[in-house]
Design a protein around this nucleic acid. Structure first.
Ligand SMILES: [Mn+2]
Ligand SMILES: [Mn+2]
Ligand SMILES: [Zn+2]
Ligand SMILES: [Zn+2]
Lengths: 147, 147
DNA sequence: CGACGAATGAGAACCACTCTCCATCGGTGC
DNA sequence: GCACCGATGGAGAGTGGTTCTCATTCGTCG
């Protein structure tokens, strides 16, 4: 799930499964998300690919989300953030700067992830809840904002 | 931080610190949040206290949030959810139903919380990030929606 | 080429939430 | 009680990120 051509094929397959074409506009979005250091907002995406139309970018991000290619992160800030879906990259979590809104990826120890999953399964079972996935967000102030 | 009168006093103090009065409308909001089984949306809050004006409720929720009395939870759904701040209740996390949007509280084992905090401190230090708090959200389907 | 459905893009619409503005309230000093 | 004044409430307008509309363009398959 890491080699570029492999990733392109996986994306193509998921789009095909949803009767969607892998057009140049969609490819530009995926390229923008790949090039980014972490999750980015739509304005940031347009900045890096200025020939994308805003409405098309939003529409295609939603379609890509539905096809399991893109993940949307919604926090308190003004814009949602977008990144490639975990199934195309790897399971991870986020540092969120409460000052500038920047989001960065972090990866927890595999053992800790396993402990968390066990704990969630147990808690959820007690509530009649069927868990599918989880998110861990660490809020604070990033290095840029600390000065 | 549990006895009702103690809680009322704490809320009063925090409001006073922010030059805000503990008025009947704000008390109604706090009562609604206390009565609720978990985090609720503004429409749910108005349903339970129909004489609140929407604009006043939103304004007072924001003021209460600023005063550290209320916490706002923002997920992907259409409405934000509101609950009493953790410093007035206790640190906990959330189950989120992806079908109906309902949010329920869960509490992790204290040892696991400590492990998480250590892990976050370490990860954040490597990134020049200063963590202040964290959230853990477990997504899935609730019992009501499973049938 | 011709046809037809999918995709695009400019702008309108949506809607949760915030702001504006004025009436009212509540405390303070006289 | 009364005048004053900042805080509060309520109705409605405004904001802005995101989604929808619809006419046009594109891709694909005969
Ligand atoms: Mn990420
Ligand atoms: Mn909660
Ligand atoms: Zn920052
Ligand atoms: Zn549900």
């Amino acid at each position: 799930m890491v080699a570029t051509s492999e990733l392109e094929r996986a994306i193509n397959d998921r789009l095909a499964d949803h009767d969607l074409r892998y057009t140049s506009g969609r490819r530009a979005i995926v390229e923008g998300l790949k090039r980014a250091e972490g999750p980015i907002t739509l304005p940031e995406l347009l900045e890096c690919s200025p020939d994308l139309a805003q409405s098309s970018a939003y529409r295609n991000l939603s379609l890509l989300e539905g096809a399991g290619v893109v993940r949307r992160l919604v926090h308190g800030g003004e814009h949602a953030h977008f990144e490639l879906a975990e199934s195309l990259t790897e399971h991870h979590h986020h540092l969120i700067c409460e000052s500038c809104g920047q989001v960065r990826d972090i990866t927890l120890d595999a053992g800790l992830e396993r402990t968390l999953d066990r704990s969630f399964d147990e808690l959820a079972a007690n509530e009649g809840f069927t868990p599918t996935h989880h998110t861990v967000d660490v809020y604070g102030v990033c290095g840029d904002c600390t000065g």
